[in-house]
Design a protein around this nucleic acid. Sequence first.
DNA 1: TGTATTCAATACAGAACTGTATCCTACTCT
DNA 2: AGAGTAGGATACAGTTCTGTATTGAATACA
Lengths: 203, 203
Amino acid sequence: METPKRSRTATRARLLEGALEVFAERGFAGASVEDICDQAGFTRGAFYSNFGSKDELVLALFQATTDRLLEQIEALLPDLANQPGTLLDAVLGLLDEAIGDQRQWHLISTEFTLHALRNPDAARALNEQRAMFRASLTRLVEEISAASHLQFSVPAEQFVRLVIAVHEGARSQSLLEPSDVPAGSLEHAFLPIVLDAVSRPSR
Amino acid sequence: METPKRSRTATRARLLEGALEVFAERGFAGASVEDICDQAGFTRGAFYSNFGSKDELVLALFQATTDRLLEQIEALLPDLANQPGTLLDAVLGLLDEAIGDQRQWHLISTEFTLHALRNPDAARALNEQRAMFRASLTRLVEEISAASHLQFSVPAEQFVRLVIAVHEGARSQSLLEPSDVPAGSLEHAFLPIVLDAVSRPSR
DNA sequence: TGTATTCAATACAGAACTGTATCCTACTCT
DNA sequence: AGAGTAGGATACAGTTCTGTATTGAATACA
């Protein structure tokens, strides 16, 4: 009762990996469960014994990514709490790093967001996840601002929302016109502006 | 040999209209040819006698849609530039007015964007259209800022890109969680912040 | 060694979609 | 009024997808 469990999580992982690629290539609706299984080297039997549906798999994918990201950010905190400037760079670096392939990830998350806009069930689940992610980020922001004597002119939660909006909007632009806009340059240009706009030193 | 031709273009138009709604509801991949025909009140016979494939229709729809949007924007610009009111009102007005149904437009344009991210040809066309849109907005911003003695700490084009990024990112959030975030509230909350960040009165 | 269990493969039934081939109707034009 | 034609409807064959029910193999444990 131990090796089977280990192999189970391994197939889960391979299915998630496979799904990442297939979704990026064909889109969420365009990718059949069978495509995903083929890519991962399994049959649908494996899929349905690990996930209840395609939605469930995507949500697992999101959870894994946000978990990883939060973990990495928290690991950074102790060192950088006192240097907000470098912290921003560091966090941006992490975003690039935690998300292996920006293009791939953007495609998938955008697709599923669209899907959620049309499916109340998916929307509920996605919102729940995103709310938890925002809550974690908000807590981090509050800690940082306390430690570094920074005050925000808007509530931390609003600030987090703004950062997410800018990040996603900027990424969309830079992916769409890679020749005019070097990858990530917009994010790196915009976020400091935003940070500057809502923060001021408290003394 | 004239009424048939007129009726032909009429069915084409109705099919395109129907496609717009069905695509918004179910997405490109999720919408079957039959769905589109049902919506338009035809059968697939009509479809295949007017379009070679769904892709072909998507292309035609894209052209028609972007043409229409650009037209509307051009028509709106002179009014906005001359009207009293803040730069912010003008920009928001343009964005809100040119786009009738925010939700439907968001779904469709996001769908197009995703499509473009996978099709270089579509990407070229979309970028061209977006560049013209940005140019219009940039011109508007420059005119108004000159008239109101505002200076920007970043080039107007960058500013426009930032506004677009924030607007799209915010819209995505507010559509996804309508219960937590009233429609448009994020856009209206964020844009003043951004505007404030990059502008200062010149005297 | 034998038994129980767990995970993935396979087989299957039903639904949905596509694209074509054919038929029908209503104009057009003389 | 009658022939020709264009546009759209209908019928159909083939493919693909989904989800479940059953089977088989490998492992854990007694």
